[in-house]
Amino acid sequence: FIDQHRAALIARVTNVEWLLDALYGKVLTDEQYQAVRAEPTNPSKMRKLFSFTPAWNWTCKDLLLQALRESQSYLVEDLER
């Protein structure tokens, strides 16, 4: 899901800070967390977050999807259609 809908997630996720907090310490290191937060816009934050995903396994991507479902369920539901 995460890889399949990358472009839509970059464009449409609005609550990136919540995602970062949910992933911090589980998937994201402090350095990665700070790097994403330093980006000026939500799309650039999501691009930076996605720059780390090639090194993630399915469990990490599932944690991101779970966080998306909790914070932006309407968006996930729309993309699952």
Rank of each mutant, 00 (worst) to 15 (best):
N42P: 10
K61L: 01
F1S: 08
D30Q: 11
W58N: 15
Q32R: 01
K45Y: 00
W58A: 15
R6E: 12
N42W: 06
L23R: 02
E31C: 02
A38W: 01
V76A: 04
L9M: 06
F52T: 00
W18R: 15
P54R: 14
K61S: 07
F52C: 00
H5P: 03
R47S: 11
S73D: 09
L75M: 05
V36E: 02
W58S: 15
P54F: 14
V16P: 09
L28E: 02
A55F: 09
D30M: 10
T14G: 10
M46Q: 04
L79E: 03
V36G: 04
L63N: 06
G25P: 15
L9Y: 05
L75C: 02
E80M: 09
T53L: 14
Q72V: 06
D62K: 13
W18N: 15
V27P: 06
I10M: 07
A8C: 10
L9H: 03
L23T: 00
L75H: 05
A22E: 12
R12S: 07
L75Y: 04
V13C: 14
L49N: 11
P43E: 14
L63V: 11
P54S: 14
P40S: 10
Q72H: 14
D62M: 10
I10L: 06
L68C: 04
A35T: 09
L64I: 11
H5Q: 09
V16R: 06
L19V: 13
R12Q: 12
T29I: 02
S44G: 13
Y74L: 14
N15F: 00
L65Q: 02
L63F: 09
Y74I: 13
E31Y: 07
L20E: 04
D62N: 11
A55Q: 13
P43L: 10
Y24E: 09
A67I: 09
N15L: 03
K45I: 03
A67V: 07
R12Y: 07
A7E: 15
T59V: 12
F1C: 00
K61Y: 15
E17W: 05
A67F: 09
L68H: 09
L28F: 01
Q4A: 09
L19D: 08
T41E: 03
D21L: 04
E31M: 04
R37F: 07
Q66L: 05
Q34Y: 09
R12W: 00
K61W: 14
P40M: 01
K26Q: 11
A8I: 11
R37K: 13
T14M: 05
L79T: 02
T41F: 00
L64Y: 03
T14I: 06
E70L: 07
F52Q: 08
C60L: 08
Q66N: 06
L64D: 07
G25I: 06
K45F: 03
D78P: 04
S44D: 15
W56L: 06
Q32E: 10
S71G: 07
L68K: 13
L64W: 00
A22P: 00
A7W: 09
Q4R: 12
V13Y: 04
I10V: 06
L75E: 06
E17H: 04
L49M: 01
H5I: 13
E17C: 01
P43M: 12
V27W: 03
E17T: 10
D30Y: 10
R37I: 14
K26H: 08
Y24I: 08
N42S: 08
T14N: 11
P40C: 08
D30L: 13
L79M: 04
A8E: 15
E31W: 07
E77N: 11
T29D: 05
T14L: 06
F1Y: 00
N42F: 09
E80S: 11
S44P: 01
A67R: 05
P43D: 11
G25S: 04
A8L: 03
F50T: 01
E17R: 05
A67N: 10
A11Q: 03
D62I: 06
P54K: 14
L65E: 12
T14D: 13
Q72E: 15
N57L: 12
A38H: 11
A55L: 13
L68G: 03
W18I: 14
F1H: 09
I10N: 03
S51K: 00
E31P: 03
R69P: 03
K48H: 04
W58I: 11
L65R: 09
C60F: 12
W58R: 15
E77Q: 12
L65K: 09
S44R: 13
Q34V: 08
A38K: 13
Q34F: 08
T53K: 00
N15I: 01
W56A: 01
E39S: 02
E77Y: 07
Y24V: 13
L28K: 02
F52R: 02
D3M: 00
R37P: 03
D3Q: 01
A7T: 10
P43G: 10
M46Y: 04
S71M: 07
A11S: 04
P40W: 02
A22T: 12
E17V: 00
V36R: 02
D30C: 06
T41M: 04
R37G: 07
T41R: 01
Q34M: 09
I10D: 04
A8S: 13
V13Q: 03
K45T: 03
D30E: 14
L75D: 02
K48L: 09
K61H: 14
A7D: 14
Q34G: 05
P40F: 01
L28Y: 03
N15C: 04
E17G: 09
L19F: 03
Q66T: 09
Y74P: 13
L75W: 01
D62P: 03
R12N: 12
L28A: 03
E39H: 03
D78F: 13
W56D: 05
V16K: 09
